[in-house]
Design a protein around this nucleic acid. Structure first.
Lengths: 186, 186
DNA sequence: TGATTGTTGAGACCTGGTCTCATCTAGAGG
DNA sequence: CCTCTAGATGAGACCAGGTCTCAACAATCA
């Protein structure tokens, strides 16, 4: 499977209470994953897991690298880029918010699958999950003879704050030349 | 350069031939769009529209540039990259199959909105449209106070052919030719 | 015609990401 | 504890898509 897609449930994704143990749990899971492939759990990989799980939300790779540096771990760009797909495949991470500009990840362990709603104005990211989507996606894939292995699904728009901000500042833009269809919520 | 990266043979050339009218229609639409913004309809832009509409399916930008060259139009990379977003905004093109590696566009004019189903094995791209998705998406955005302005939605999996091939391995790699690099790397 | 302002094209530049390769190390055996 | 070997690492070269710059150019309008 392409490392880094939104894995469809039924894969790993063990739903467990997010707690201190999550690092331990992830390490265990990763160790198992590596063992199956005759790969090694090295210090660098351990450090990356820790740094990764410490960041609760989505994070761009670049920030993760900075994190590692800050922790005094050498951690080269190459190593991080090599490790993240492994973690994704192991079900510990999942790719998130792929805007076509930068990749971004987030912890997957112990979480339900979800997709993202991104604000074009301020960059805010809201997560949502909606069982119905999964069902429809599977249905569509099947209809075309595909076996579904993942998806990218991201909604983009303006959050409430940004919509408000559009109207408020800088004079009275009465929304005259806003070619945005899709009704202006609330 | 990675030749053929987003080539989806057997998938294109379905739509009707260029159809003078669609180019004319697009030009008219674009002209109106530009006029509203005090921008100009130049020879380069005209050429880009024509080249774009001549390609019925999805196409990577790189190929479009090659097209222009082939047509004897100078067309620099910068101009193309500057024009495509304009065309998108004008509703003539739409972004398609954003894998996070390369952008890819397709004509939007006169077409229903649709999303894509991509085969990880051979790179085949199937289009699908499903009203229900749009409705759910709108619903979700609204629920979070967002005004929906667009989305990325792409399903990935294995097409029937590739699944069959999986079961009967040993055969020659039918598509080694078409890495389509959705996999982990080069 | 000339002034104004948007547009173009070539190429330098930027940047996220990958690859190379010498060196290191986890882990299995001895 | 030592040795051996394949996997892992890190620094940095490298790659490619995409953006920016800037001088030259052209559509418009006075």
């Amino acid at each position: 499977m392409r490392p880094g897609l939104n894995n469809h449930p039924g894969d790993q994704a063990i739903a467990a209470p997010p707690g201190e143990s999550s690092v331990a749990q992830a390490l265990k899971q990763f160790e198992r994953f590596l063992a199956e492939r005759a790969l090694r759990l090295t210090a660098a990989r351990r450090a990356i897991i820790e740094a990764v799980l410490e960041r609760a939300g989505h994070f761009p790779i670049e920030e993760l690298i900075a994190d590692l540096r800050r922790r005094g771990i050498r951690g080269s760009k190459a190593t991080v880029y090599r490790t993240l797909p492994l973690l994704t495949e192991a079900g510990i991470l999942q790719e998130a918010v792929v805007t076509g500009e930068t990749r971004s990840y987030e912890a997957a362990i112990g979480r339900e699958h979800h997709d993202h709603l991104v604000c074009l104005g301020c960059g805010k990211v809201v997560e949502f999950e909606f069982e119905a989507f999964e069902i429809l996606q599977r249905e569509i894939a099947a209809r075309h003879g595909f076996r579904l292995e993942g998806h990218h699904h991201q909604l983009v728009g303006r959050c409430a704050d940004c919509q408000r901000r559009e109207v408020a500042p800088a004079g009275p833009p009465v929304n005259a030349e806003h070619p945005n269809r899709v009704g202006s919520g609330r």
